[in-house]
Design a protein around this nucleic acid. Structure first.
Lengths: 194, 194, 194, 194
DNA sequence: GATGAATGAGCGTTCATTCAT
DNA sequence: AATGAATGAACGCTCATTCAT
């Protein structure tokens, strides 16, 4: 009955993000979402083909944000080691500050929804690439990253992911000094030349 | 005339685990579970108060299995460093071999189900304790683990968790040599004093 | 809230039949049906796997009723020609008296629902067989029906079907004497030895 | 710069017909139709008041086409008996070649849509009239058709309709020689004075 | 110890249609 | 002449759960 001309798309995404965080994929229902947005469930289908596409859009957004964050960190770093450290810190910050994005990007089991298009995952791999390149630079390799760098980038990523995901899940011992913990994770991962 | 008492409980748990593996938490429905077990949905409620309690039982089982695995690894190790390495390896193996347990133990967002009783999580912390103690032993601390050991145990754990969880989610680059990757993760985590 | 122990199945079928007649396949909704029956939509699924299976059950019933009717007619007939005439009359009567069955058995376009199992259509063919046999008998063929009889049975059937279906659809000119019309159809179809 | 006025109406009708053939009345949705036409659902309402009126237009078209076909057949016939035969053949051909028209003209239960205006049905009766007249001519009645002719026209029609409708529904035994079957139906119906 | 019958709530989705622009 | 945004109602169906037996 109320015919607002306000573009709903961003509103829908915003609400979906919050809802996803609060209740998980399973708890995100088109109707509850619509209710939160202030429109009918039908209207959501004007902007997204279906629930999965809506989620995919959120993943897209998340990947984009994370990439921006990492790229900025890489650019602002003064030295090679600082760049690696900075990337780690940026990754952790992003994850901890954007749990809603983080969950759908990395926690959502693919079987829980229509597979996120492989083509888009490739875009996600750009993020990893930033780490790989920073490692190559640090090692003074002028002819690009080696397999070794690639492997290293992956372990760094998985270390960081482990930390973020346990923290978000509230699984890390609260008596632990969080900052020290994060520092330790970074040192483990980006740890100097050894 | 064999009148088996046919206690359903283990059958239910076994099926639930298989189902969880095949279709994820979201795909586990009481009706389908009952169907697999060969009883009615109602019967399940004789053994478990509700779906969440059933899941909790599975978590209990999982924690127990993991603990057994880790303790065995700790006992069989010949030296201090070997003990830490062995614990890491055992953790990774457990996670990768029991994705159904791993998901509900560590991936399931607490908000997705009735909170797992805090009291039980404490039991889960025994697992972490094994790491802490191994680290203390390695450092020749006779008067028990320090805060430092505790912190270290946590980063080790989160590193391992990161690896398992990305592997299970199929998020790790398939072109990567998996064994080399796992080795690197362990070295990162348990890597001696260097 | 009301837990009646009255078996719903026949009630559901009865209501579905009426509803199908009144509003067609498209107009038969599980919810409206449940409402008419006095239960919830969910309950219907206790008795029928889904909407199509419910319809199939109705078709089964219809085929059975028609067969009973035809067989009875065939048995009661005194002579060979009378048997053919009787079968025709019985078919017309059945169709006109049971429009709800008739529609779902013969009018429902197969594309409108999951295909009725081929195996069951075979059962439906028994009905046609009664005609074929009556024709063979009338022609004094002791060694069973010929292709000719089979063809004839089919044209008889289609003539009768045409009449029933146009009458049920209200497409036949109301100024026409209905009884005379039906007589003419039968004569066309079962028309003597000529 | 060809600025076609691109009147949508014929395009809509054409698509609706195709869709009706492919998916039946039930499968014809305004949205999907619009999609096929290349316009929005809203646009269709510029040309047709609603879905039923759209269907009615198609029925109009169908009646017109059938009439053309029958009239042509009647005109081309050389003799009186040939005229009756030709009409039958034309009717069968039309039905079998235009299942999409045939369905909405004769199969669609009136209750499934807003009643087709009675006034228009009268136009449809012209088709029957062609049969009646041909019969009168064949019987050498110079003073117009009798009630007998009218009755006969109706049985012919219903015989033909029975055949078309069973064939379209795929209900006729596939082992039957189709051409022989059709011939037999015509002979039944138009079969001379014998 | 187990079942059969039933429920109420909710799911994702599609429908024909309206209306301001 | 056409659209884009929105709606309310309905759809088939599945869910976890209850309760009398």
């Amino acid at each position: 009955m109320v015919r607002q001309s306000s573009n709903l798309q961003p509103k829908i995404l915003r609400n979906a993000r919050a809802m996803l965080l609060a209740e998980g994929y399973r708890g995100l229902s088109m109707r509850k979402l619509a209710n939160g947005v202030g429109c009918t469930a039908t209207s959501i289908y004007l902007y997204f083909k279906n629930k999965d596409e809506l989620i995919h859009s959120l993943i897209d957004e998340g990947i984009g944000h994370l990439y921006d964050r990492l790229r900025t960190a890489a650019q602002q770093a003064k030295g090679a080691q600082e760049r690696v450290d900075g990337l780690c810190r940026a990754y952790l910050d992003f994850g901890l500050e954007n749990p809603e994005y983080y969950e759908i990007m990395f926690q959502l089991h693919p079987t829980h929804m229509t597979r996120y298009p492989a083509e888009k995952y490739r875009r996600a791999r750009q993020n990893l690439q930033l780490f790989t390149e920073a490692l190559a630079t640090r090692a003074n390799r002028s002819d690009g990253p080696t397999t070794e760098d690639h492997l290293r980038a992956n372990t760094i990523w998985s270390n960081l992911h482990g930390a973020v995901s346990l923290l978000l899940a509230g699984r890390v011992d609260v008596r632990l000094d969080k900052e020290a913990y994060l520092e330790a994770v970074i040192k483990d991962s980006a740890g100097g030349v050894a």
